[in-house]
Amino acid sequence: MTWSRATETRAAAILARYPEKRSAVMPLLYLAMAEEGGDLTEDGMRRVAELTGLSAAQVQAVASFYTMYKRDGVGRYLVSVCTSISCMLCGGDEVLDAVADETGVPDGETGEDGLFSVEHVECIGACGGAPAVQVNYELVEGVTPEQARSLCRWLAEQRPETVVGDDLQERFGGQRSFDWGPEEAEGATGPVPAFGPLGTTGERS
């Protein structure tokens, strides 16, 4: 199989960033996810193998090692709640309960309608603004359980094409780890980290 022409062009650009093709496996796996709306499929992994000269098993071995490659499918909005030590001390567990309750999706699962996946995560480097949440890896800091509920309701009602961290922080956030500086319009178009070279970055919609 091959991907769309645009995705194949992007894959070639990613391969050109590295001295050895194999190093492109991880970014290409993100590309494969973005192509399939967030899911990492067997076909996707096979294409990554073809492009990098590895076997499908070698690619699968890499994909299964890292938590961000979602081989069991993932919702349109991946809500990750930090419950590591600093966030736990500041109420992260209660935020996780609120998110699970409001979305009806238990920790570690994806809802039947495919709108939300909910997961607890280990430290996401937002301890000064604990407790912290990410939606499609876009960060919001200083979230109360009630704000977390509002965030989930807003996502379900608005269904934004692009999720932008600054926007979430403005609407639902509180204490930040540090001054974020000027607002940024770029954000995630799916449950894959929004990064230009991966083609997963979108302007605010």
Binding site: M68, G125, A188, A194, F195
Partner: peptide, 9 residues
């Protein structure tokens, strides 16, 4: 780290 898209950008 993958969870740092904004720093990466």
């Amino acid at each position: 780290r993958g969870e740092y898209p904004r720093p990466a950008r």
